[in-house]
């Protein structure tokens, strides 16, 4: 009797086109919110049907800072806090490409806070995806400018007492033309938000509330990653167009999510061209037509 040996299936990972499979397994912890966030971004890129050669991703330092290393795009892992100005230079050199900054709350808002607000002010055409886990995770769970009051971290062992930033309010008041917040649980809505943000000309910002079970949840006795997702499920309040003064995040209370801002405003390069055209008239050749060669 002969036994027919079946070859094991060799299915591709559904997001293989957008992932550096030669770098998998990744370094992130089980139940980290980064997996779903990257999936959301990959799906958004697929749905937008962009030429992937024309998409660049820039990250800073930290857990989320490692995203650039796993996405199969022209990808730049820069210094702590400087992903946004690096991306600004890249965008101005190649305005025809989509530039996406993917980084964490500590990287973008603490050490990179000044760059964040000024790039939003200029309305530079880029998308910033900020994965907010309320803590510095890569370095072992220190307090962040997003840590809710009373939440514990390794450097706020008796509970944080500093006011945290309200990121959507910060982004909007600095000049962002698109602002949304979702949690890592809202995969479909998050995907739509990332898609809209990438398609939006100007500075677009998506905050992703993401579970960090290894540090934030453990230090605050919030249970497992699954418990955090359940918390998001029970406590997220969808409120599109919410008054941004009221979307602060307190410790283990309601999280307001939704699309908060979606407005039209000339981008940095449009303003640059308009400003120069005003003075030089036809002598001025609009910037961004020929690119890359000097």
């Amino acid at each position: 009797m002969s036994v027919e040996i079946q070859q094991p299936p060799t299915e591709e990972h559904p997001k293989e086109k957008l992932l550096r499979m030669d770098r998998i397994p990744h370094i992130w912890c089980p139940t980290c919110g980064l997996g779903t966030t990257i999936t959301a971004m990959a799906t958004a890129l697929e749905q937008l049907e962009l030429d992937l050669n024309d998409v660049a991703v820039v990250s800073g330092i930290g857990c989320t800072g490692r995203v650039a290393g796993y996405m199969k795009l022209d990808s730049f892992h820069t210094t702590h806090g400087r992903s946004v100005p690096f991306a600004l230079g890249l965008h101005i050199a190649r305005p025809d490409m989509k530039t996406i900054v993917f980084s964490g709350d500590g990287d973008l808002i603490s050490i990179g806070g000044n760059h964040f607000i000024h790039t939003a002010r200029r309305n530079v055409d880029m998308t910033v995806i900020c994965v907010n886990n309320f803590i510095y995770a890569m370095t072992g769970g220190q307090v962040a400018p997003t840590t809710p009051i009373t939440a514990r971290s390794s450097t706020s062992p008796y509970g944080n007492y500093e006011h945290p930033f309200n990121l959507p309010l910060l982004a909007a008041s600095s000049g962002a033309v698109y602002v949304a917040r979702w949690t890592a649980l809202h995969i479909r809505r998050l995907t739509t938000a990332i898609k809209e943000a990438i398609a939006k000309p100007g500075f677009s910002f998506v905050e992703v509330i993401a579970p960090c079970s290894t540090l934030y949840a453990r230090l605050n006795k919030l249970g497992s990653g699954l418990d955090l997702m359940k918390f998001y499920h029970d406590n997220s309040v969808i409120k599109h167009g919410a008054d941004l003064r009221e979307v602060d995040i307190d410790f283990q209370t309601k999280i307001v999510v939704g699309k908060f801002v979606d407005i039209e405003k000339p981008t940095y390069i449009e303003c640059l061209n308009e400003g120069n055209k005003r003075v030089f008239g036809d002598k001025y050749k609009p910037y961004g037509v020929d690119h890359g060669d000097s």
Partner: peptide, 30 residues
């Protein structure tokens, strides 16, 4: 402006140096 270059006054020197690296990778002499 008339020779196709972009000058940008950044928010600080940290950003200035980061931006010229980004532009260099974008193909510009910076």
């Amino acid at each position: 402006p008339l020779i196709g270059g972009v000058f940008i006054q950044m928010e600080d020197e940290l950003a200035s140096m980061a931006a010229i690296l980004g532009a260099a990778w974008g193909g510009r002499k910076s």
